[in-house]
């Protein structure tokens, strides 16, 4: 895809006055929404947000609810995983604060997404599924710390790709897009920390960023989590050819999205079959 062709098709000034007004009112709503979010959980959503959001077409609202329920499913998985790990005592004492911090963020994401789906979009948040983090008896994350960290890396890197893959599907709403971006970068921080922690502990040689499509010492089943991360070409530009920077370095510099189907395939390994 040629970027300049893309840019040629962009006509920001052709929006009619009415849609522009809607655009701005949603944006203003987000500013209040954002300020509000800093203070407390979304126990009461400002009226301005409720008034602004329904101006999105119903079909778009359905899409937003669908995407956020998908995100909520992944956040449920992450939160439950860390909580069970902490409960089981598998996390070494020195690293409990790190895992607790990540757990806290995932729980906050669960609560935030639940509130937005229910009270902003008037949808029905998905209930927490029943998980099987042994993946049918293949893993023992709650009795083996290296396995616990390895799966944590897999979940965080998957989460980053999952949010990225949905950006275009939520861009109609500035509120939802900005919230999703603000979760996405937190997941990336988690991923970087877990990856580097594993390497510092001698369990792997991965860096904070993803080199090619390398799974490091993760089990072969993790290949799908990193498939496509070796990409060097963006908007039709092969950046390695352009810059002379080696493929490893260029692949690290861009994270790649993953489709909902691929992510659910990965997450499905950890769902109880009774779901």
């Amino acid at each position: 895809m040629n970027l300049m062709k893309l840019l040629d098709t962009i006509c920001p000034d052709t929006k009619d006055a009415e849609s522009k007004d809607r655009f701005y009112s949603r944006r203003d709503a987000f500013r209040q929404f954002g300020d509000f979010g800093k203070k407390v959980a979304l126990a009461a959503v400002p009226l301005s947000v409720l008034n602004a959001i329904p101006q999105i077409a119903k079909a778009d609202t359905a899409t937003l609810i669908n995407v956020l329920n998908y995100a909520l499913t992944l956040e449920h998985l992450e939160y439950r995983y860390y909580q069970l790990g902490l409960d089981a005592g598998v996390v070494v004492a020195a690293e409990r604060p790190i895992i607790q911090k990540i757990r806290d963020h995932e729980l906050a994401h669960v609560r935030f997404l639940t509130e937005v789906i229910a009270n902003v979009l008037n949808g029905t948040p998905v209930a927490e599924p029943a998980f099987d983090f042994t993946a049918g008896g293949n893993f023992s994350p709650f009795s083996d710390y290296p396995t616990f960290l390895a799966l944590a890396q897999a979940f965080e890197d998957t989460g980053v790709r999952a949010y990225k893959g949905q950006a275009a599907n939520v861009m109609e709403s500035d509120v939802v897009l900005t919230a999703a971006l603000s979760i996405h970068s937190v997941e990336a921080r988690h991923a970087s920390m877990i990856r580097r922690l594993r390497t510092k502990k001698g369990q792997d040689m991965v860096k904070g960023w993803i080199t090619g499509n390398s799974i490091g010492t993760l089990p072969a089943a993790a290949a799908g989590i990193y498939a496509g991360e070796e990409n060097l070409t963006h908007a039709g530009v092969n950046v390695s050819t352009l810059t002379g920077i080696d493929a490893a370095g260029v692949s690290e510099a861009w994270d790649e999205p993953l489709s909902m189907q691929a992510v659910l395939g990965i997450a499905g390994l950890f769902l109880k079959s009774s779901n």
Binding site: V160, Y163, K164, A167, L181, H184, S185, V186, E187, A188, R189, A191, S192, G208, W209, H234, E252, A253, W254, D255, E256, P257
Partner: peptide, 11 residues
């Protein structure tokens, strides 16, 4: 989006 998550990894 592909770039910002790498910046977050750096940070």
């Amino acid at each position: 989006g592909k770039i910002v998550s790498v910046e977050a990894r750096h940070a």
